[in-house]
Design a protein around this nucleic acid. Structure first.
Lengths: 161, 161
DNA sequence: CCAAGAATTGATATGTTATAACATTCAATT
DNA sequence: AATTGAATGTTATAACATATCAATTCTTGG
């Protein structure tokens, strides 16, 4: 599967189908897909870009949902916990999951210039890291795999590429 | 090479040889291995654990080197820039490089319980991430590869392992 | 040696990211 | 309707990080 995010696609459909799958997952797992949570996912889905918690908060506040940080952080925690969104540790920012519903170990290509993010679809057995962990007797609970760099669009825009 | 950090080794030697290699690198590259910078590396080297910038700062301050955050952050920036230390993004914390002088793409096993960190030695061609990047025309500048979980020692210490 | 310039250090202030604690509202169940 | 548990909202503060400028030290050419 090609990494989503750097190439053209039917984004309206991308958004709709992700929301639908999130909705279905919540029904199936008895999770509450509340107004704030749903709106937060919509905000993240608007673009394949990472948004800071305070960016999300600003939008929520403008729309009349709580104006204090915990509102955004709780919604983001819910979304990441449910697998609907991921945190980009290298940016302290959050992004909607591009492979919602598929079992995957998220890995990202992160443009440090424009903050657009492509989510690659990697197998859950994580290559060298998995081997090293097994050898050391280490129990992996979560993996952070991010390539920070410059995306194709930004490379083209650079005078001295 | 086994990941360093979770198993016994001659740590005094580990520290000494790392400092020696750092020293040599600075001489070779005309970098200034000043008092603050060297002491900061020593602090990180004391254990194979990640320390926050303010943890480092507290020690520096106690020893009479500047008490304000920029002192610690500048030293840490120097060390990470020179490849003598790495930032663990998942913890917002810093650790001495365990493979100083060897060309490597750092990858870590990070214990979220005790913050000890093992640095695996992975090849610079980064498997799936590298492939995905090449396919997308993405220029990688830095990789963040961290497995967060529970280290062998903490697994043993857990009542309900 | 010493003056000029560059790099490093130190301090103040502030910006950014994140959470603790508690009150209130809402929804499901009895 | 009363109970209860989850979700929301607010205040306050903690934790992480940087911009700016002044003072010092370290080169290096004169």
């Amino acid at each position: 599967m090609p990494p989503l995010g750097f190439h053209k696609h039917d984004h309206a459909d991308c958004v709709r189908s992700t929301l639908d799958r999130a909705e279905a997952h919540c029904v199936a797992h008895n999770l509450k897909f509340t107004r704030v949570r749903k709106r937060t996912l919509e905000i993240l889905l608007a673009e394949h870009r990472a948004l800071g918690a305070y960016d999300v908060l600003a939008i929520l506040a403008k729309e009349g949902m709580g104006a204090a940080p915990p509102v955004a952080y709780r919604a983001l925690d819910f979304l990441t916990g449910a697998g609907f969104a991921h945190k980009i540790e290298g940016l302290n920012a959050y992004i909607a999951c591009a492979h919602l519903g598929e079992d995957h170990a998220p890995a990202f290509l992160v443009c440090t210039r424009c903050k657009s993010v492509a989510e690659a679809n990697t197998a859950t057995g994580k290559g060298r890291l998995g081997e090293a962990a097994a050898a050391a007797g280490f129990r992996i609970e979560r993996t952070v795999v991010e390539a920070m760099g410059i995306c194709p669009a930004c490379i083209e825009d650079t005078p001295c590429a």
